[in-house]
Amino acid sequence: MNALAARGIAKSFGGRKALDGVTFAIDYGELVGLIGPNGSGKTTLLNILSGHLVPDAGEILLDGKPMHGMTPVRAAHSGILRMFQLTRVFRRMSALDNLVTAGCALGLEFGAAQARARELVEELRLEHVATLDAGNLSGGQQKLLEFGCCFMVPPKIALLDEPFAAVHPTMKEIMAEFIRRRHAAGQTVLVVSHDMPVIVELCRSAICMNAGVVLAAGETREVLANHQVIEAYLGGEAA
């Protein structure tokens, strides 16, 4: 049984197909990279998996059970937590309060959420900005904070949309190390990135999309060696 699976997901925006029959599965404890050229549908897929968009066709299975009428709130409570490509933090609340809010929303008691928030702040090296309003954090610090919010309560699966984009190498390493540690402890993660070295280093398996379809899925090295994948990356849109 898979932790998360999608079957024949399709989505069009005004007649333009963004996703055209996407099928894949992620096992428990897997750390999977999702790659593909700009506009290939990665974010759209994440939006559907997390209940932010309703697919035109196809279904999503969590723990092998189909999820119908999924909303972001339901997704979060079923253990699907995500990070957005365009960072979303609660700008006029302190960084710590952002984390506490994320914890409380998933049922942590106040005290437990506070303790957990302090641990995460330390682990993510955000101590010195923890009491600042999140809106005053740098772009990279905000990404780190949003990242932390996904792990206040260990999710069934974390969907990370380009967590490393425009992030300083040091912070990138903090995040990568965090993911590695959680993965070693059994955390399931799907991570979108254009940063091939990181994907190769981090993810044993990968899914490559292009123009709304899955081109290849499996071991990362094999996916990257796939000639269609190479063509997609070199040739741009049409494949």
């Binding site: 997390s50 932010h52 609660f90 409380c104 929303a105």
Partner: peptide, 24 residues
């Protein structure tokens, strides 16, 4: 209380609040 946190979260980013599991 937690209600205060939820209201402020909704004020700052409604989509973000929902994605954290807050019943907006």
């Amino acid at each position: 209380s937690r209600a205060g946190l939820y209201l402020m979260a909704i004020r700052d980013d409604e989509i973000g609040a929902a994605s954290r599991g807050i019943n907006t």
